[in-house]
Write a protein that binds this DNA or RNA. Structure first.
Lengths: 113, 113
DNA sequence: CCCGATAGGTCGGCGCACGATATATATCGT
DNA sequence: ACGATATATATCGTGCGCCGACCTATCGGG
């Protein structure tokens, strides 16, 4: 498996991290998580979701009817959680490197190389 | 302008952050910056580079012949530096949120909300 | 009664990523 | 001497993901 995680896919995984959510809920959570900058369209959402399910990172978690409207829930699989953790670590490292490159005035670095 | 930065485009910008580099040098720096996980192919590189130049984020910086081989250098523009800074901040925030979601067992958080 | 929000989903276009390919020189191993 | 690998540029075709447009349906408010 080991699919390549795009940022959208990553955000969807992240939205499912704390609790199962239905499609529309994922869209809202991603919007919040990204500080409002990433607004998932329907096409993006279901495409990403299908790929995540195919990769074994997410799975359907049941359907509930609330106020006459169907809610189809998705949850993270253990593999999905692993992928999310790994990708988060990668992101954290990258952000740290970038901060060092931008903030640091390129000091000679005698000890670390 | 304000083009949408893909991860590849972001990494190229980041590779140009500390000093101008030629195409092949960018490929190598991106590989290092990403911990070896992102290997830019030729097609990706020049596509990204063209888009960055078109967006005003990078520009050609001169050509040098070393060992009979031409090196075409690119450098960051002020706009490119701004975009890089902004995108880095966005990434840092995202990584922080993700860490909180994954590591934190959802503590009530009395002070911060 | 219509509109916006909530909730599900499909479809087609567009743009980006990426490998394949081409060209050319220098180096290193055999 | 030769082929492989690394350096260095660039183009092209394809595949796939992103995203808006669109469709159906329910509920609440104006």
């Amino acid at each position: 498996m080991a699919m390549r995680l795009t940022e959208q896919a990553y955000l969807v995984l992240l939205a499912l991290a704390d609790q199962p959510r239905h499609g529309y809920g994922v869209v809202q959570e991603v919007r919040e998580l990204s500080g409002g900058s990433v607004r998932l369209g329907a096409g993006t959402l279901y495409g990403v979701l299908d790929r995540l399910v195919a990769a074994g990172y997410a799975e359907a978690s049941g359907e509930v009817v609330v106020d006459g409207r169907l809610r189809r829930y998705y949850r993270l699989t253990p593999d999905g959680h692993d992928a999310l953790t790994a990708e988060t670590a990668r992101l954290r490292d990258l952000a740290r490197r970038a901060d060092r490159l931008l903030g640091g005035v390129a000091r000679p670095a005698p000890g670390i190389a």
